[in-house]
């Protein structure tokens, strides 16, 4: 009879395991783990592991709570809701949320681009030039590569040096193919690889608040950037 009981328990356990999520029985004496992004809301786990949704490491509950208390909540429309990881030209791995706190001016480019990207970079430089020096330290100019395969952190570093942008005010990001696709979708930037070295892409410069909310988008190349600049200054001074 004991065997039957054993089989019953086994099958319940198997059921729980083979569904998309793992079971969530609670035990008071153990530390509970939870996804730091709360992919599954308040769901907890008894053992360490990775979130089945976003694949991030689960955090012990107490630690996770501390983190949330320590920082301001981000809003529903913030780009900091994205949970993919990025490599910077400095060789760090970050989440977009790590860019929190500064006004962000973001553009998507690729370093081997011969046509529009140099002009987009020039547009970024023009914007930067017209912003009062005192405000620059509160702004981060972010360049996201749409060609993560070619644009390694080393390539991005070289590109930064070449363009005199190798400092704390400029960040260059390499993502994963799906992470870049997701990010472009948040910015409504369209792009398509048309050959191994070439992409078509829309030319959009986006301004985000220090909380990651979209403030303004400038479309096109060499367009009048007055509105963009005033929006950036307005956002920094808020």
């Amino acid at each position: 009879m004991n065997y039957l009981k054993y089989i019953a328990i086994m099958s319940v356990a198997l059921l729980a395991l083979s569904a998309c999520n793992v079971g969530n029985s609670k035990n008071k004496n153990e530390v509970l783990y939870q996804c730091p992004m709360k992919c599954e809301a308040e769901k907890t786990y008894q053992a360490e592991g990775a979130c089945p949704v976003c694949k991030m490491d689960l955090k012990p509950m107490a630690a996770a709570d501390e983190k949330i208390l320590g920082t301001d909540e981000i809003s529903e429309t913030s780009i900091f809701n994205l949970t993919t990881k990025w490599n910077t030209e400095k060789g760090n791995t970050i989440l977009l949320e790590d860019l929190k706190g500064k006004t962000l001016v973001m553009v998507m480019i690729y370093t081997t681009c011969k046509a529009a990207c140099p002009r987009l970079v020039a547009d970024m430089r023009n914007i930067e030039k017209q912003i009062p020096k005192a405000l620059i330290s509160k702004i981060n100019f972010v360049f996201v590569s749409i060609d993560p395969e070619t644009d390694t952190p080393e390539k991005l570093k070289a590109f930064a040096i070449e363009n005199f942008m190798d400092d704390d005010q400029h960040t260059f990001l390499q993502g994963t193919e799906s992470g870049v696709r997701e990010f472009s979708n948040v910015l409504a930037v369209k792009y398509k690889q048309i050959s191994p070295m070439d992409f078509s892409h829309s030319n959009i410069i986006s301004v985000f608040s220090p909380q990651g909310e979209l403030v303004h988008q400038q479309e096109g190349l060499g367009v009048d950037n007055k509105v963009t600049i005033s929006k950036i200054i307005e956002t920094v001074n808020k």
């Binding site: 529009a116 048309i194 992409f199 078509s200 892409h201 030319n203 096109g220 060499g222």
Partner: peptide, 9 residues
């Protein structure tokens, strides 16, 4: 016409 890099896709 200058919204997109490269020739019209």
């Amino acid at each position: 016409s200058n919204l997109f890099c490269g020739s019209a896709a």
